[in-house]
Design a protein around this nucleic acid. Structure first.
Lengths: 298, 298
DNA sequence: GCACGCTGATGACGACGCGGTATCGAACCC
DNA sequence: GGGTTCGATACCGCGTCGTCATCAGCGTGC
């Protein structure tokens, strides 16, 4: 059952006239007659009663008309559906992010993407870098928002945001009285650090900064993430270095201060498989660029 | 979106391997690659991710696979459905019959047709000859079971059953004492007759028999149909000539007797449009022939 | 009542597209 | 790094589609 023949048949069945149907189909009448005859012999069934000058459908023809219309309409809808997916306006996109990305630009990127592509189902999940790397390579996710980035032959990485580090202090700390604090002046303080593994970790990053400033924190406490670190700071356990965006979420008992000294900052990046060509991905990257560019201007 | 390409695509999507899909489709691999590429360019969408040796479906491809399977299955079902209708195993058939046909072979024909073609919806309706003729010509019904037959250029008529006439008497009638009654001996009786129109009517038929026997009933009473006639006979209004099959439905107060004399009988016929080629019709005619042939043997 | 017109079927021909074989190019594997 | 596997490309022959021309049957009208 060729599709062309089905279209032809519907035209004839609707017009009940070969000539008119042919001109509607923008072909001549002979091929139309032949195609219908071919369809009938393929099916082994008469579809059109030609015994009179005014042709009419047989029972089989009537049923086929219904079915054919249904199928053709389904194909048409499918065509549009597929096209929308192919353009990235529909379908789904799986994004994973490190917990600390929830403060800064990421929510704005998500919001912007949602409003630009409301029909794309966004599957968001929090993962640490190691999980992200595994998941993105295994194609379980499409985009990994990592800090600072994922390094792998299979992956590509694009910077999302570069931000300075900032000092988090207890709001009862006497250090608050100074306008500006030199980092090396804090060598005696207790530092809240982060898990060492997997390497290179954010803990390594902090320690390398301290080293650059000429000291190693004597007293160290471990926190799983920034939230926990801030909690520890709020109860007076010690001080912490955090990305500046973390300070956006205010917390009782915690004050933030810029510091003087080496501040390489920290970066958020978008990571994805090199061979991932899905349009949703490129659309997301574009939106992310737009949002960060706009945000940087402000 | 060509149907062949859809089939090809489903094969590739299921095998995830062009070579295997090609051999499953019993074609060579190059044309398959080209058809898939063609489908993709028709839709303007990548359906298959060929970036690795192990190919995989894109989102659009996955959705198309589902939709294509659905459409192909619908077409397959439609094919079978249409074929069954074309062979007369499914669909519907509209039959009209004169009231007096409900006694004789017709119920058996209907039963036989029902059991041979259980999926054909039979639309049965009672009509007099005039209504039948109009309805069958206008294609409102497919078969008219008429008595004796419908005459028209557009119609064909086949005998269904030829049956003798029989005398219906009150069971208190003194006529019952004789073994056989000569029709002409009844010239003084009151005859229950039938509507004169439309001509030629069954009333004319009865009167022509009487005329053949050399008399015209002096006393006549009219009944709309055989049922009414029998009712009138049962209450002693008069006597009636009815088709033999009518006597199958026994009725208190009525007795039946054969008579001596001219008995041309009466015929039931199957009538249909000459140009009606629907298989259901021919199947019905065949069943009717079988049933009457079998019944006649008994 | 016969001729004309309308409508669908049939015949002949050119063009496009499909499938076949041969071959290429890239990725993967040892 | 050479061999193997797999999809893409090049080129060719044939089938099928669409076109024009024409036929055949039915209905209609003067």
């Amino acid at each position: 059952m060729d599709l062309r023949r089905l279209v032809y048949f519907v035209a004839v069945a609707e017009e009940l006239h070969f000539g008119r149907a042919a001109s509607r189909l923008a072909i001549a009448q002979p091929p139309l007659s032949r195609q219908i005859a071919q369809l009938e012999s393929d099916l082994g069934v008469m579809l059109i009663d030609r015994s009179r000058s005014q042709i009419r459908l047989t029972q089989a023809g009537s049923v086929l008309l219904e079915r054919a219309r249904d199928v053709l309409e389904r194909l048409d809808r499918t065509h549009r559906e597929i096209k929308r997916i192919g353009e990235g306006f529909s379908g789904h996109l799986r994004v994973a992010f490190v917990g600390s990305a929830t403060y800064g630009v990421l929510p704005n990127v998500i919001k912007a993407f949602r409003s630009a592509y409301p029909d794309v189902e966004l599957a968001l999940s929090a993962m640490n870098n190691a999980e992200q790397k595994r998941a993105v390579i295994q194609r379980e996710i499409d985009i990994a928002v990592a800090r600072p980035s994922l390094e792998d032959e299979e992956l590509k990485s694009e910077p999302l945001l570069q931000e300075p580090l900032i000092l988090a202090l207890s709001d009862t700390s006497p250090l608050l009285e100074r306008q500006v604090t030199r980092l090396s002046a804090l060598k005696a303080e207790t530092f809240v650090l982060y898990p060492r593994k997997p390497r290179p970790s954010f803990a390594d990053h902090i320690l390398s900064i301290c080293l650059e400033e000429g000291f190693i924190p004597k007293s160290q406490v471990l926190a799983q993430d920034y939230q926990t670190a801030i909690s520890l700071v709020s109860v007076g356990v010690g001080i912490a270095l955090v990305p500046k965006s973390v300070s956006q979420a205010e917390r009782p008992g915690v004050a933030y201060r810029a510091y003087e000294g080496y501040n390489p900052g920290t970066a958020l990046s978008l990571n994805y498989r090199r061979d991932n060509r899905m349009p949703h991905l490129f659309n997301f990257l574009k939106i992310a660029q737009d949002v960060t560019r706009r945000q940087r201007k402000q």
